[in-house]
Design a protein around this nucleic acid. Sequence first.
DNA 1: CGGTAATTTGAAGAGCCTCAACTAGGGTGG
DNA 2: CCACCCTAGTTGAGGCTCTTCAAATTACCG
Lengths: 220, 220
Amino acid sequence: MLESQRRAVSRGTMLRRERDPADGLWVLQSGWAVSALGMPDGSRQITKVHLPGDVMGTPGAALSGGTETVSMLTGGMVSTFSRAQLTSVFRDHPRLSALFFVLVQVERLSLCDRLASIGRTDARARIAALLLDLAHRSRLADPAMGDRLALPMTQEDIGDAVGLTAVHVNRMMRVLADEGLIEREAGAVRLLDEANLARISGYVSRWSEPDTSWLPKPAE
Amino acid sequence: MLESQRRAVSRGTMLRRERDPADGLWVLQSGWAVSALGMPDGSRQITKVHLPGDVMGTPGAALSGGTETVSMLTGGMVSTFSRAQLTSVFRDHPRLSALFFVLVQVERLSLCDRLASIGRTDARARIAALLLDLAHRSRLADPAMGDRLALPMTQEDIGDAVGLTAVHVNRMMRVLADEGLIEREAGAVRLLDEANLARISGYVSRWSEPDTSWLPKPAE
DNA sequence: CGGTAATTTGAAGAGCCTCAACTAGGGTGG
DNA sequence: CCACCCTAGTTGAGGCTCTTCAAATTACCG
């Protein structure tokens, strides 16, 4: 059995702070979380919004120093993975090791997409891209969600994710709503026109199907 | 023998275009290269500047679709790695697999840093952070380089890397020079005050020493 | 040496931020 | 049960950063 303890965590819990020593990693079983980097001036950059099923804290597991702050946006359940377990995976399960490798590559590519979004598109497009990304990933877990995306993030959180202020996030979401692209509800958003949202944001889904053809056979 | 052909490539060569089918990966033996994503409007975001010794094209090797465009900034030498070779590494070399994993984590973290730089700092700080990053990495290969960083990038390239226009890159580099933080030469930059460059950019080096304590023993 | 790419500089405007005030909800304690 | 507070969202005004457009200058390469 690879996973160990399950643990209930409440909203706002920090699973790891930036300077904490490296330990294991987590799998988010339910709820939402974020990984973030703090800046010297006190602001922060959210590097990833975690949905149920996501593996969190891999950089901290693989590298020496603490790296990102991982904190809960909602209450939820996490299960922990120790470093020793990671070691044994690489020693004993070649195919699983390669799958880990693929998984990190997907994350890496997703980061590149967000880099391009923040570096090369305007505020409206960045928010559209974030919403589409969250919607596509939510849909993997819940294909029946339709166009309604549960969104337990404040506008400040959204701003920290896409490099904007909360004030400007507010204005741009109003614009998207006025254009009929989204509809806003309490703690949720309806994506009324995903095709146009994708067009204005340049969003492409990377979550289709990773290529497993090159992995070692599941021999043993 | 894991590496295969070495190949000389000239400046401007595109090793892979964004939509190309997935193949292997490369190790850059000499010269500089960049990985980039193209945007619908024709602009591009450079996701990584590659220095000699870097592994390039890992996402394309691990995932199905083509992903990033990899192109040479200067002439140089690359050696290629096929997907089949990657498969055999994961099957037969647990420790090497884990090292690959660590390597990708370092890259991932480095991307997070740049995300924070672009999302949360101004133009001057972004350029300072890029210069420091390149200097630290160059220094790993050539500890004797002193404060002189060879920089075979146009200002347009720099802008594409940090999310700015070439015009504004030009102005900000002039500001850095006027402040006495850098000194500009043809195809190179002197970093006159790395401490202050780090202070204004919030740069922290991630290239110190990855933690290898958890890796499987180099048994066989 | 001619031609093209890269850098430099100026001026004007757009986009986003800052500051500030106000509104709405949700929880808490009296 | 209501008063209060604290968080989150909303809206306006003004200013600064960065972009855009344009032109001139310099460096590079055949």
